[in-house]
Lab assay of single mutants.
Amino acid sequence: ITGDVSAANKDAIRKQMDAAASKGDVETYRKLKAKLKGIR
């Protein structure tokens, strides 16, 4: 179950990262990237 949750989280975070990148929001992008590392 835990694996599914983190996989879903990663997917959601990647989508947020894409949105931040397209807006040029480097700050948010970095925060999300750090979150991704924390999940692993």
Results as ranks from 00 to 15, higher is better:
Ile1Asp: 09
Ile1Cys: 04
Ile1Trp: 14
Ile1Ser: 12
Thr2Val: 12
Thr2Gln: 11
Gly3Cys: 13
Gly3Leu: 13
Gly3Glu: 09
Gly3Val: 12
Gly3Pro: 10
Asp4Thr: 11
Asp4Leu: 09
Asp4Trp: 04
Asp4Tyr: 06
Asp4Lys: 07
Val5Asp: 13
Val5Thr: 11
Val5Cys: 13
Ser6Asn: 08
Ala7Tyr: 10
Ala7Asn: 08
Ala7Pro: 10
Ala7Ser: 12
Ala8Val: 09
Ala8Asp: 13
Ala8Phe: 12
Ala8His: 13
Ala8Pro: 08
Ala8Gln: 12
Asn9Cys: 15
Lys10His: 10
Lys10Gly: 08
Lys10Thr: 14
Asp11Met: 08
Asp11Val: 06
Asp11Gly: 05
Asp11Ile: 06
Asp11Pro: 00
Asp11Gln: 10
Asp11Arg: 09
Ala12Tyr: 08
Ala12Thr: 10
Ala12Cys: 00
Ala12Gly: 05
Ala12Arg: 06
Ile13Ala: 00
Ile13Thr: 03
Arg14Leu: 13
Arg14Ile: 12
Arg14Gln: 09
Arg14Ser: 06
Arg14Lys: 09
Arg14Met: 10
Arg14Val: 06
Lys15Pro: 01
Lys15Val: 07
Lys15Leu: 09
Lys15Ser: 06
Gln16Val: 02
Gln16Ala: 14
Met17Ile: 03
Met17Lys: 01
Met17Ser: 02
Met17Ala: 02
Met17Gly: 01
Met17Cys: 00
Met17Trp: 01
Asp18Phe: 15
Asp18Thr: 11
Asp18Glu: 14
Asp18Trp: 15
Asp18Met: 14
Asp18Lys: 12
Asp18Cys: 08
Asp18Ala: 15
Asp18Val: 14
Ala19Ile: 15
Ala19Glu: 14
Ala19Ser: 07
Ala19Tyr: 11
Ala19Trp: 08
Ala20His: 01
Ala20Cys: 00
Ala20Met: 01
Ala20Gln: 02
Ala20Arg: 00
Ala20Val: 02
Ala20Ser: 01
Ala21Tyr: 14
Ala21Trp: 15
Ala21Gln: 08
Ala21Thr: 04
Ala21Lys: 13
Ala21Pro: 00
Ala21Asn: 05
Ser22His: 07
Ser22Pro: 00
Lys23Asn: 11
Lys23Phe: 04
Lys23Tyr: 04
Lys23Val: 10
Lys23Arg: 14
Lys23Gln: 08
Lys23Pro: 00
Lys23Thr: 08
Gly24Ser: 03
Gly24Met: 03
Gly24Tyr: 02
Gly24Val: 01
Gly24Ala: 03
Gly24Trp: 03
Asp25Phe: 00
Asp25Ala: 00
Asp25Glu: 02
Asp25Met: 01
Asp25Leu: 03
Asp25Cys: 00
Val26His: 11
Val26Glu: 06
Val26Gln: 06
Val26Thr: 07
Val26Trp: 15
Val26Lys: 08
Val26Phe: 15
Glu27Ser: 02
Glu27Ile: 06
Glu27Phe: 03
Glu27Pro: 02
Glu27Leu: 05
Glu27Tyr: 03
Thr28His: 04
Thr28Met: 07
Thr28Asn: 04
Thr28Ser: 06
Tyr29His: 02
Tyr29Lys: 02
Tyr29Asp: 01
Tyr29Leu: 09
Tyr29Arg: 01
Tyr29Phe: 05
Tyr29Ile: 04
Arg30Asn: 11
Arg30Trp: 05
Arg30Glu: 14
Arg30Ile: 09
Lys31Phe: 04
Lys31Met: 08
Lys31Thr: 05
Lys31Gly: 01
Lys31Leu: 05
Leu32Ile: 02
Leu32Ser: 00
Leu32Gly: 01
Leu32Pro: 01
Leu32Gln: 00
Leu32Asp: 01
Leu32Asn: 02
Lys33Arg: 07
Ala34Glu: 14
Ala34Ile: 06
Ala34Met: 08
Lys35Val: 14
Leu36Lys: 02
Leu36Cys: 01
Leu36Arg: 03
Leu36Met: 03
Leu36Ser: 01
Leu36Asn: 02
Lys37Thr: 08
Lys37Glu: 15
Lys37Met: 12
Lys37Ser: 10
Gly38Lys: 13
Gly38Ser: 11
Gly38His: 08
Gly38Tyr: 09
Ile39Phe: 14
Ile39Arg: 03
Ile39Val: 07
Arg40Glu: 14
Arg40His: 14
Arg40Gly: 14
Arg40Trp: 14
Arg40Phe: 14
